[in-house]
Design a protein around this nucleic acid. Sequence first.
DNA 1: AATCATAATATGCCTAGACATATTCAGAAA
DNA 2: TTTCTGAATATGTCTAGGCATATTATGATT
Lengths: 249, 249
Amino acid sequence: MTRNPHRRTAIGSSAIPRYREIYESLRQKIVLGQWPPGHRLPSEHELARSFGCARMTIGKALGALADQRLVTRRRRAGTVVNAPRPQESVLEIHDIEAELLAAGVSYAYQSLERRVRRANTADAATLGVPPGTPVLALTGLHRAGGRPHALEERLINLQAVPEARAERFADISPGRWLLRRIPWTEAEHQIGALNADAAIARRLAIRRNTACLTIERNTWRDQQRITHVRVIYPCDQHRLVARFRYGPA
Amino acid sequence: MTRNPHRRTAIGSSAIPRYREIYESLRQKIVLGQWPPGHRLPSEHELARSFGCARMTIGKALGALADQRLVTRRRRAGTVVNAPRPQESVLEIHDIEAELLAAGVSYAYQSLERRVRRANTADAATLGVPPGTPVLALTGLHRAGGRPHALEERLINLQAVPEARAERFADISPGRWLLRRIPWTEAEHQIGALNADAAIARRLAIRRNTACLTIERNTWRDQQRITHVRVIYPCDQHRLVARFRYGPA
DNA sequence: AATCATAATATGCCTAGACATATTCAGAAA
DNA sequence: TTTCTGAATATGTCTAGGCATATTATGATT
């Protein structure tokens, strides 16, 4: 092992890597408007020369900019600054239990209904399985500090999760149970609002017609539907927060 | 330029790159449970040997897995499979106008109120600026197919966006106007639900107490607050959809 | 048994060079 | 003028090797 004859400067001596520095430097030019949308960046070769590093290091920095959607890269066409991105944000849908415990509030799950049945047409439509597929239908209440916090209506595909048939879900949240048993590969959320009907109002101990936030979630494991859940929060009990930053992930 | 003496197989001959194949192969092992959470992956050297490629190619694949939060990598400790991630999803908050036009519905913005004032305490709190800062307060209606679609209440920091003072916003949506003028670097969304009060109901032509979905958005440009907006959708007019997939971005 | 210094190890980052491929551009042919 | 063809170019991917650094394991010393 001989000493690398090509090395010019010590690497790793500084805490922040070179490609990050370069990334930051280029990012500044873009977000501060010095390079407006449509502007074409210098080629990798030129940047490598001007920054005094190998082309691959530039490639890594430009790749990171592309990951962040700040630029578009095309062969021969070069690297071009994007128009400001459409509003897009990372939404974290937290585990209700973890969230409440973190806030120092007591938490409990209470099962209200549990039925195994063959999917009727409604089940088949919401869960996306053929009618007749065995499903587990659960209704439960999440309680925070003793008071009703959210109502959960869930369908589980027993073909995908046969172990669920033996589980009572009397006081453990099916969300948690599933999360640590069945890895999901794809999820879709739909967020909406509804006026509480009589049944919902009674169970959540709120007035009829109170606005509620609803979150519907479908999860898949490699094409196969695992579960569908609708969680209903009274409007004063929950907000979703999503935050996005340009820049270092 | 001599032919690379090290090359063993043609690259680029196949449409999918080697590191993606490797990424996929490793990802399968994880999401299908063959490598459970906590399992330590073989070292880069071992993987390079078994896949018959350079260590850097393995590094790229493992780096992608780490970006997806499927694994955690630490020096000397190695690469370890993560516990299933907390529910986290990319939420796209679309431009209302673009969304409606894409759906083939006519769109119009109608200004209802426009006032320039020095921020009162309420303005200061919502926009996060010192009281007295000049702000532009706008109220407007998004119409789809002639009917009210969403109500928008907005505050713009005139210190950050002085050009807005000259703009009437009579029939162009301030969201669009801002988006293409002021690049934002950070955004926060809060999603909730509310019962329409009399004023909201009148403007949206819905019944009082109808549940509405609200989206509040704050945007920053490098520490500086740009705007705060609250958009109110009747519950039957809008849903937010967020989708997440493990795997290739 | 507990503490500390040292060696081993796995990742992190980098280089210089090479081939592959998509896309654009200029010039030739129709 | 239009269409086609080949050259030029910028990115995409890969290799083989090297140094840097964090962390763990080991062994020596107290």
